[in-house]
């Protein structure tokens, strides 16, 4: 055992103490409260998505003539295919939900404020990246709704002034949905975006490590309590518990509401009711309220506002007496998003 250890040590010169220090970042005490662990949830779900995604890629064939069938094969014929596919689908849903909840927690606790403005923006990129993975993944099934969702999505991009046409053609690989489109969506979904996402997650975590997690002190807490606890094993256990709970939840969702097959894509007939995935309901309703470029530009403006929020917030706090303005604006924003989503969910058109 020792000889093997020294054999390895010579070839992989790692210092145990360094390793311990590197991994055993002291965790601020407030992370004992579960809602502060929401950042770890999407990370764990990302791993689930990678595992199930790789499994699905063994059977998926990204061509218009075979895509639907290969998904049908996975769902109906491959052993446990329905389960793996449902895990992937529900994993995506939970991941997006967790990202949004994590962002809300960060927002309402003001954790984006100086010096963490950059990490907020990295987080915004993560949000956009996650949504895009969701969008491209949904298109791969090549059923009616996913086909028309992709078509509508690409045409929304087209409405952006100046660069819109270019973006659309780059996304579709042509002026309209064609034989190359599905392959593009596939590579974007399964390679480009996951790698980007992984890099962004690494950056996100690195920045956290460099700055330290923002610490919270709650009123009902004993001020003499320790300021932090060990990452290993205490916080790891928390993460393991969370991971297993998520797996059980995913399994339950996959068995109760498994992913099904809609009618195959038909480029010549648009279904009566078309809806994107639930996380795009906000944007979808927004686009119905305004028209063309106005809708797209206003949406872009909202996203830009979110990106720059740490600076805008700082400006407001510096120049006005409304120190808690961000909370009220946040509440209004959440209500608006919830309202638009519910509205879209309830009506057919």
């Amino acid at each position: 055992m020792n000889s093997l250890g020294s054999w390895l040590g010579q070839r992989l010169p790692l210092d145990k103490l360094d390793l311990r220090e590197l991994t055993n970042e002291p965790v601020p005490y407030h992370l004992k409260r579960w809602w502060f662990a929401l950042g770890g949830t999407p990370a764990y779900l990302f791993v689930v998505q990678i595992v199930t995604g790789i499994l699905l890629a063994f059977y998926y064939q990204p061509a218009p003539s075979t895509a639907y069938n290969s998904v049908r094969y996975i769902t109906e014929e491959a052993s446990y295919g329905w389960y793996i596919r449902s895990m992937h689908k529900w994993g995506a849903t939970l991941m997006i939900a967790a990202v949004v909840l994590h962002q809300m927690r960060v927002y309402f606790t003001g954790a984006y404020r100086k010096p963490r403005e950059i990490n907020w923006m990295v987080g915004m990129l993560l949000l956009i990246c996650t949504l895009m993975i969701g969008f491209t993944g949904y298109s791969l099934v090549f059923e009616q709704l996913s086909y028309w969702g992709a078509t509508v999505g690409a045409n929304i991009a087209d409405a952006v002034p100046v660069v819109g046409g270019l973006a659309k053609r780059m996304l579709l690989g042509g002026d309209r949905y064609n034989a190359n489109t599905l392959a593009r969506f596939y590579i974007i979904h399964a390679a480009v975006l996951p790698v980007t996402l992984a890099a962004l997650v690494a950056t996100h975590i690195a920045i956290i490590r460099l700055q330290g997690v923002s610490e919270m002190q709650f009123k009902d807490e004993d001020p003499s309590r320790p300021r932090s606890f060990n990452f290993f094993p205490d916080h790891l256990y928390t993460e393991l518990i969370m991971g297993l709970a998520l797996m059980i939840l995913l399994s339950a969702l996959a068995t109760i509401a498994p992913a099904e097959m809609g009618p195959p894509a038909d480029p010549l007939s648009t279904p009566e009711v078309i809806k994107p995935e639930w996380f795009f309901y906000v944007a979808f309703r927004w686009l119905k309220l305004f028209s063309g470029s106005a809708a797209v530009l206003s949406m872009g403006a909202v996203v830009a506002l979110m990106f720059g929020w740490p600076f805008i917030d700082a400006f407001i706090r510096r120049r006005s007496r409304f120190q808690e303005a961000s909370v009220w604006i946040g509440i209004l924003g959440v209500l608006a998003i919830l309202g638009l989503t519910v509205w879209e969910a309830l009506v057919a058109h």
Binding site: D234, L240, I248, T255
Partner: peptide, 19 residues
Amino acid sequence: KRWIIAILGGLFLVSLILV
């Protein structure tokens, strides 16, 4: 926490048996 992990692991197994 360890006991909770043990129980959750078992529950996960149960859910997979159901699958």
